[in-house]
């Protein structure tokens, strides 16, 4: 079954070389950074697919390629079977564009401070010359704000309320897919709960599909139907929340779960994980995780494991399934 979104072999390389002149003088080679490498997954309609990973693992880059803000270096993103990069019919492009929306991390930077709320949240419709009578008021009520708020400016709202405004804007064009890039990372837990609940409710009411990007495992566990774990731009494991958290198949997933602070574990004494994410411009040979991996053997240094089916999910590890959680009670 292919889903609403189908991603195949997605790769993105950034040129992070110094300026041309410096390179000539200092005789440096070009430096390429592979932010996303050969990532493939499907998102069935009306489900939530979550991407987790540490900083720099390529989560946002994938999100931007899915919505069409960035061009893939290789591979493609198909939404409803249509690839925005190669599609030439403007009518189809326009239709797909209305089907995709995005919610960003920073609730302060994602609303134009000089615009009124009404103009901000109806822009996806008004930009196409659609009818916006009463639309702002309807959307505001849907996200739990008041109709009168339409005339205000963003600075009159708190962080959580701004994020609701972002949700309202995302809903305006009645999209099918919403890409959420760390939508609650900048919010306090109590406000995060409000926004996450709102997003769950709207998913039910509008039949939405989410690509949910986060570094917070507890949030992802709560929201996702399927979780993809990224390490250094590659998908290392994909599974449902239950199986991922109970029996992680990849040692990196296990490390993340162990390292995440837990509410029910005061005074927990576990050895913290070793090492840090390596330099993405010069990734380790073989499996990129091998320098930090407790299970690493010679084959891990030499050969990169392929993402292969494992149980109901997929995993890229030579020693898949041998991991144990440290904190497991």
């Amino acid at each position: 079954m292919t889903g609403l979104v189908s991603i195949k072999g997605l790769t993105r390389v950034f040129d992070v070389s110094k300026p041309w002149l410096n390179r000539m003088i200092e005789r440096l080679p070009k430096r390429m950074l592979t932010a996303v490498s050969d990532v493939s997954f499907d998102i069935p309609a009306k489900t939530t697919y979550a991407l987790v990973g540490e900083s720099g693992s390529g989560k946002s880059t994938i999100g931007k390629m899915v919505v069409g803000l960035l061009r893939p270096t290789e591979g493609n993103v198909e939404i409803d079977g249509i690839d925005l990069v190669t599609e030439t019919d403007p009518a189809i492009i326009d239709r797909i564009r209305t089907d995709i929306q995005m919610i960003f991390q920073d609730p302060f930077a994602s609303l134009n401070p000089r615009w009124r709320v009404r103009d901000i949240i109806t822009e996806p419709v008004s930009a196409r010359g659609g009818n916006i009578d009463g639309l702002a008021e309807k959307l505001l009520v849907q996200v739990g704000l008041a109709e009168e708020d339409a005339g205000k400016y963003p600075h009159q709202f708190s962080g959580g309320q701004r994020q609701r405004l972002c949700v309202a804007r995302a809903l305006a064009s009645e999209p099918k897919l919403i890409v959420c890039d760390e939508p609650t990372s900048a919010l306090d837990v109590s406000v995060q709960a409000q926004v996450l609940n709102l997003m769950s409710d709207l998913k039910e009411d509008h039949g939405l599909t989410y690509l949910f990007i986060s570094h917070d495992l507890t949030v992802v566990r709560h929201m996702a139907d399927t979780i993809g774990v990224l390490y250094l731009g590659r998908l290392v494991e994909e599974a449902s929340p239950t199986s991922l958290f109970n029996e992680p198949a990849h040692p990196y997933t296990a490390m993340l779960i162990d390292a995440a602070p837990r509410l029910d574990a005061f005074g927990r004494e576990v050895e913290p994980p070793e090492g840090e994410i390596p330099d993405p411009t010069d990734p380790p040979s073989g499996c990129a995780f091998h320098p930090r991996c407790p299970l690493a053997t010679d084959i891990c240094k030499a050969e990169r494991p392929k993402l292969t089916p494992h149980g109901a999910g997929r995993v890229a590890c030579h020693h898949a399934g041998q991991v144990r959680l440290k904190g497991a009670a």
């Binding site: 962080g159 709960a193 029910d264």
Partner: peptide
Amino acid sequence: DGLMASTPAASAGQARLRQIPGA
């Protein structure tokens, strides 16, 4: 109580998180 309960970890397995209304 509200702060602790609104963490996603605290309401694992529930469809909705408990939230403190307002800000």
